[in-house]
Computed example of a mutant assay.
Amino acid sequence: MKLESNATIQIQKPVGEVFEGIVNPEKMTKYFISESTGRLETGKEVIWKFPEFDNKYPVNKIKIETNRSISFVWDPETIVKITLEELPDHSTLVRVNENGKELNENNLKWALENSGGWANFLACMKAYLEYGIQLRKGAFDFMRKG
């Protein structure tokens, strides 16, 4: 049995704006990461840095379907897939699924933490894209070493 984490939210913006908010590092740094070596594009590898961690995270095996889906690997055991669905009111339903880990105690903890993490990602993205609010700013400073 493979574990997975899931999160879903509806954002009151057209699918093109939401898509751009995910693939464009200038937008992503306003609500999720602190640095990126580039835009998410099929076949490319980028490096992400988060404000609360010293490590850098390679993001690879990127596959993009414009305004439909973004998938990538940042943990060799899992695949992250973000799907976008334009709704009749021109808002966008965003679903995140990360899966692939075997069921064991450590990975069960991972699944629970990542489900919360992806829900936070979506809430922060919604606040930024709809209202320009940077919810993540300072939210995880307590996790910094030192």
Rank of each mutant, 00 (worst) to 15 (best):
K2S: 14
K2M: 13
K2G: 04
L3C: 02
L3A: 06
L3H: 02
E4G: 11
E4W: 05
T8N: 08
I11L: 04
K13W: 04
K13A: 14
K13F: 03
G16K: 10
E17P: 04
E17L: 13
V18R: 00
F19I: 04
E20G: 09
G21F: 06
I22C: 03
V23P: 00
V23N: 00
N24V: 12
N24H: 09
P25G: 09
E26T: 13
K27E: 10
M28F: 09
T29G: 05
Y31T: 07
Y31H: 08
F32C: 10
F32L: 15
F32A: 05
E35K: 15
T37I: 04
T37H: 03
G38R: 06
G38P: 09
R39K: 12
L40I: 09
E41R: 14
T42R: 01
T42H: 01
K44T: 15
K44D: 10
W48R: 01
W48D: 07
K49L: 03
F50C: 06
F50H: 10
E52R: 01
F53L: 13
K56P: 00
P58L: 05
P58Q: 08
V59W: 02
N60V: 06
I62M: 03
K63D: 11
I64D: 01
E65A: 11
E65Q: 11
E65F: 07
N67H: 12
N67C: 09
R68Y: 11
I70G: 01
S71A: 10
S71I: 07
V73Y: 01
V73Q: 08
D75Q: 07
D75G: 10
E77Q: 15
T78P: 02
T78D: 02
T78A: 05
V80A: 05
V80P: 01
L84M: 09
E85W: 03
E86T: 14
E86R: 07
L87C: 07
P88E: 10
D89N: 14
S91K: 00
S91P: 02
S91C: 08
T92E: 03
T92L: 03
L93H: 09
L93S: 14
V94S: 01
V94D: 00
R95T: 15
V96H: 02
V96P: 01
N97S: 12
N97M: 08
E98C: 05
N99V: 12
G100D: 02
G100I: 05
K101L: 11
E102N: 14
E105P: 05
L108K: 12
L108C: 11
A111R: 02
A111S: 09
L112M: 11
N114W: 11
N114D: 05
G116T: 04
G117R: 00
W118S: 04
A119C: 04
A119S: 13
N120F: 12
N120A: 15
C124N: 15
C124S: 13
M125V: 06
M125N: 08
M125C: 13
M125S: 11
K126L: 07
Y128R: 01
Y131P: 02
Y131A: 14
G132F: 04
I133R: 02
Q134E: 15
Q134I: 13
K137G: 03
K137V: 15
F140D: 08
D141H: 09
D141R: 04
